[in-house]
Amino acid sequence: MSYLGLDAIFVVVAAVVVIVAVRPGLTGRRRSASGPTLVDRRWWLATALTAAGLMILTAVFDTMMIAADLFRYDASALIGVRIGLTPVEDLAWPLVASVLLPALWELLGRARRADGAQSVVRRATEATTHPEGNP
């Protein structure tokens, strides 16, 4: 297995978590007619911007950290494409972080709301689909 192959495993794990988060039917009470209720368009935009920002930071700081000899790579496990000194494989870390962790946060929020706590995200969605505010 290469480092890229190992990355793929973690990317798949992140994808599974986000798929669960975007499908309210799996754990939520009801699928909204307007589509995903929990992970909406603005969530995706925030996630994309976070991922982009973290990937830039990763390329910059990894390069500095590799230059400072904080860690080393086995070159034979890498595909060989680098941004600065950063192997592209390292960019999977910020990608997985920015997708999986916020999705988990939303899922935990839904679990908590099922216990009676309220979320404006949820209420806003319900207010949109049920203007009378009574589910």
Binding site: L6, A68, D74, L100
Partner: peptide, 22 residues
């Protein structure tokens, strides 16, 4: 999650610690 990722990469021989003074 990330420590597992590290542990797997170290076990597979992809990473090793550097010897930087920092």
């Amino acid at each position: 999650l990330f420590l597992s990722w590290d542990a797997a990469a170290i076990r597979l021989g992809f990473f090793e610690r550097g010897h930087g003074q920092a």
